[in-house]
Design a protein around this nucleic acid. Sequence first.
DNA 1: TAGATTGTTAATCGATTAACAATC
DNA 2: TAGATTGTTAATCGATTAACAATC
Lengths: 210, 210
Amino acid sequence: MRKQNVSGAVIRRLPRYYRHLNELNQAGVVRISSSALGKSMGLTASQIRQDLSCFGEFGQQGYGYNVDNLLNEIVDILGMNRGHTAVILGVGNLGRALIENFNFGWSGFHLNAAFDVRPEVVGQIMAGTPIFHIDQLENYLREHPASVGVLTVPRSIAEEMADRLVKSGVKGIWNFTNTELNIREEGIFIENVHFSDSLQTLSYLISEDA
Amino acid sequence: MRKQNVSGAVIRRLPRYYRHLNELNQAGVVRISSSALGKSMGLTASQIRQDLSCFGEFGQQGYGYNVDNLLNEIVDILGMNRGHTAVILGVGNLGRALIENFNFGWSGFHLNAAFDVRPEVVGQIMAGTPIFHIDQLENYLREHPASVGVLTVPRSIAEEMADRLVKSGVKGIWNFTNTELNIREEGIFIENVHFSDSLQTLSYLISEDA
DNA sequence: TAGATTGTTAATCGATTAACAATC
DNA sequence: TAGATTGTTAATCGATTAACAATC
């Protein structure tokens, strides 16, 4: 797998491949051609073959792709089989929603712990996830390293918490705080989930031409 | 404002402009040049001028852009001043997080109501938003049309709920269900917030080359 | 074998960047 | 006026699509 020259556009399509192949797999489909997959996903066959060729040769002439095999390749490409771990900072409504309803395992992650300051939640175990006081963050991460820190704290402390996560060795930050984090450390990746950007895009689309 | 030929890439940058200009405005900055704005946002001056020129001429030679004025233009372009309204379907953890913590007003929306089936929540008023039984959806929307329906229901009923929203006249669906909705009606827009796609992208980035 | 479909190279299309005349 | 900076046209770069020889 050579990932040096892979464009962001290709990377962002990989999770969609994962989702679609998963559905095909569960529906019992054994093989699929790039044109059939493309049709069902709204992509061209060319694009699918081009995308996959960034990572290897997974198909067979005259046959297409074995669904199960390709699914496993995508899992490997996405790094979903590396035993990644996560901790959540901020157990407000959104933090709780992630703890209780989001399936980290489905994306190859294990959620180790969550952190907050509020006495009502600190010490609890929520859907199997222990909640510690934020003061314990550094100690905890020293013992139990996390691949990713999930930021669901208030905007006002986002930057500070992000710094603490990075200092404690996370490789990525999953940022729900609707701020642009100014991390410039080498090799730290930030993935933003900006609800308001998303809603504003929708606003644009539904608004009549003026 | 002519929006026929505006590419998705440009549209997705508009909310970022909104965010940055807002911060500049609050910091008391009165004017800014495309090169200064670009530097602070990590874009080229060319791109900013090119982007804005899709919608009009908002600057002045030798001066740059008036921050307050440009901010208003972006608000108008994004349709944030059209009195858009929203309803939420599904008051689980995520629905509640949006009701209680997400600032719809900041994106130009008013959240009118939410819908669920669970007796514990139906009839409640949550952070000012009334929660009705889903059976009341059509009646309610007939009286109080909504621009957008927010889908925070379980995956299993996502498609069905989306259909009901579309039949009741929403123009857009803000989809948090991690499924691809198969709406093909003319002029209905779907904006997906796929948490797992986002986390898997991060997984790819933090995973070492194999 | 004949038909199907791959991986890859070449062609096209679109988006970003650079350059510059216009002008505040 | 001189300096700065726009809006826009042209050049470059990158991503998508088309074509096709290789081959299962």
